[in-house]
Computed example of a mutant assay.
Amino acid sequence: MAIVELLNQDMKQAMKARDKETLSVIRMVKASMQNEAIKLQKDALSEEEELTVLARELKQRKDSLHEFEEAGREDLVSKLNTEIEIIQAYMPEQLSDEELETIVVQTIEEVQAQSKKDMGKVMSALMPKVKGKAEGSRVNQLVQKNLS
């Protein structure tokens, strides 16, 4: 089932349950997806594009969470934690460190990378394989570790 269809289904359930927080987050995510479709001049996004939007929304909230924690805004921290949980429910299951390490090593062998100079080549081949399943910073750290 496409992510948009799942969002629509969950939006109806949130309306019936009068769950304002979930409803609000789902509406924000749907709006972001619609904006992305308009930007790309498409009627509907592919699943990969939907994942890109979800990952972007998740990253924005995690960045904001860090800022609010530093500022001591506990009221906003708890709200953002709830939003992050709701969005993560639509993301594919994250890869374990072992699985990610295996994919990184295979990709390094595929592109025949020798040193950190080949980092860009490795990352460009690797990111489409792990899109939505691992954060870019985690991937970057593993690639650097395996190239040194």
Rank of each mutant, 00 (worst) to 15 (best):
M1G: 06
V4I: 11
L6S: 10
L7R: 09
L7W: 06
N8W: 04
Q9L: 04
A17N: 14
S24G: 06
I26C: 05
I26L: 14
M28I: 02
A31D: 09
Q34F: 15
I38Y: 14
Q41Y: 07
K42Y: 05
D43S: 13
S46I: 01
S46D: 06
E47Y: 13
E48Q: 12
E48I: 07
T52Y: 10
T52P: 00
R56T: 04
K59N: 07
D63C: 05
H66A: 11
E69G: 02
E69P: 00
R73M: 04
L76I: 15
V77P: 04
V77M: 04
V77D: 13
L80H: 08
T82H: 14
I87H: 12
I87Y: 12
A89R: 14
A89E: 12
Y90I: 06
E93H: 08
Q94M: 12
L95M: 13
L95S: 03
S96Q: 02
D97T: 01
T102V: 09
I103Y: 09
T107H: 05
E110D: 14
A113V: 09
D118A: 02
K121H: 08
V122L: 01
K129E: 00
A134I: 05
E135F: 09
N140K: 15
N140E: 13
N140Y: 12
Q141I: 12
K145S: 02
N146W: 03
L147R: 03
S148Y: 06
